[in-house]
Computed example of a mutant assay.
Amino acid sequence: MNAPSFAGPVKRSVTIAGHQTSVSLEPVFWAALERAAGEERLPLSALVARIDGGRIAGPSPPNLASAIRTWLYLRYASHSQ
């Protein structure tokens, strides 16, 4: 097994509901998010908007980057069981 490649966050702009916002995620999370968008047959911005909608509906919303990381973890952790 290869050693994991550790890299710091990369900031990218995403459009949500017609507004630009920037999100900082590590490259491994960007790759997983792009994979999930492909699997869902959605543009990346549409998937981020969906995650954001779920995030802001909660009682104590985390920041968007945290919500994305959590969503990805829950998505892929449930697929591995």
Rank of each mutant, 00 (worst) to 15 (best):
N2G: 07
N2P: 15
N2L: 14
N2R: 12
A3K: 13
A3F: 04
F6M: 09
F6L: 14
A7F: 01
A7C: 06
G8N: 12
G8H: 07
G8C: 05
G8Q: 11
P9N: 12
V10C: 09
V10G: 06
V10A: 12
K11N: 06
S13R: 15
S13C: 06
V14A: 05
V14K: 04
V14E: 01
T15Y: 00
T15K: 09
T15R: 07
A17G: 05
G18F: 13
G18Y: 11
Q20E: 15
Q20C: 08
T21R: 14
T21I: 13
S22V: 13
S22N: 10
S24N: 08
S24Q: 07
S24V: 02
L25Q: 05
L25C: 02
E26N: 02
P27F: 08
P27T: 07
V28G: 02
V28I: 13
V28L: 10
V28N: 10
F29L: 06
F29A: 01
F29N: 09
W30A: 02
W30E: 05
W30Q: 03
W30G: 04
A31Q: 14
A32Y: 00
A32R: 15
L33H: 07
L33R: 04
L33I: 05
L33S: 01
E34W: 03
E34C: 09
R35H: 10
A36I: 07
A36F: 07
A36G: 00
A36Q: 10
A37T: 01
A37G: 01
E40K: 15
E40P: 02
E40Y: 14
R41T: 09
L42C: 06
L42I: 03
P43F: 11
S45N: 14
A46E: 12
A46H: 11
A46K: 14
L47V: 08
L47D: 01
A49K: 08
I51V: 15
I51Q: 02
D52F: 12
G53N: 07
G53A: 11
G54L: 10
R55S: 00
R55M: 03
I56M: 11
A57H: 02
A57G: 10
G58M: 04
P59L: 14
S60R: 15
S60I: 02
S60N: 14
S60M: 05
P61G: 10
P61Q: 12
P62R: 15
N63H: 10
N63R: 09
N63A: 11
L64P: 08
A65I: 06
A65Y: 04
S66C: 05
S66T: 15
I68Y: 11
R69F: 01
R69N: 04
T70N: 10
T70D: 12
T70K: 11
T70V: 13
W71G: 06
L72D: 07
L72Y: 11
L72K: 12
L72P: 04
L74K: 08
L74P: 00
L74V: 05
R75Q: 07
R75N: 00
Y76V: 02
Y76T: 01
Y76A: 06
A77P: 00
A77E: 07
S78V: 07
H79W: 09
H79M: 12
H79P: 01
H79T: 12
S80R: 11
S80Q: 14
Q81A: 15
